[in-house]
Design a protein around this nucleic acid. Structure first.
Lengths: 102, 102
DNA sequence: TAACGTTATGCTTTACAAAGCATAACGGAT
DNA sequence: ATCCGTTATGCTTTGTAAAGCATAACGTTA
């Protein structure tokens, strides 16, 4: 009936980098290979998804995705090595905390 | 440099009841004996503090404070037994999680 | 070269929390 | 009866995150 809940996020130099929502966005981009499709799948505007990625990049100091424009499919986006490392660090820490919340 | 942070709160039936900000407000009211002075001390409008208390009451199902109007001092507010119990439960759980975050 | 799907951005509109403003009520003290 | 400090609320303004709208650019394919 009454329960403790927690919202968890990674910070770098006091600036928020990655929380649950952002992590899901990056994962969906990774799966879909496109910001556009990821945003659609998550019911979020492309504009907003793109803005979030800019924020992550600025906070993290390195690009978490690499995009190309044009071509057969119109373009694509994939996670950088740095982006994958970030996701991994977040999941590792967040999972430990989740286990603790029981 | 990069660090995991968490915001913690108590929920009842899925509705947020008490987080860090609200807990500090209740504690300050307890210490000051007045919503008005507590709000001032926390740099928050009385109006806002009052609104927060309404939300806590609704979410928690019981009044967390008891107030009286008028009189020598203008009025006063103190925590109810239920309010103290709520604070205690929150602190107990939140403290355990804080220890974990290291 | 025209079409297509996506990346990339600027600007406007919504949605909502917090702040701020205003006013009534209360009851002891003067 | 008046003053004072606080409780109690309604209404308006501000600030900020998200949504929405519009447009340009890009490179393969038909």
């Amino acid at each position: 009936m009454t329960r403790l809940r927690a919202k968890v996020w990674l910070e770098k130099d006091g600036v928020p980098v990655l929380g649950d929502g952002r992590a899901v966005l990056l994962e969906t981009i990774d799966k879909e290979g496109s910001i556009h499709r990821a945003a659609g799948k998550l019911g979020m505007s492309y504009r907003h998804a793109w803005g979030i990625i800019q924020k992550i990049n600025r906070a993290w100091g390195e690009g978490v995705v690499h995009s190309t424009k044009g071509g057969k499919e119109g373009g694509k986006t994939e996670l950088t090595t740095s982006g994958r490392a970030l996701l991994k660090e977040y999941h590792k820490k967040a999972a430990a905390l989740d286990r603790f919340l029981k």
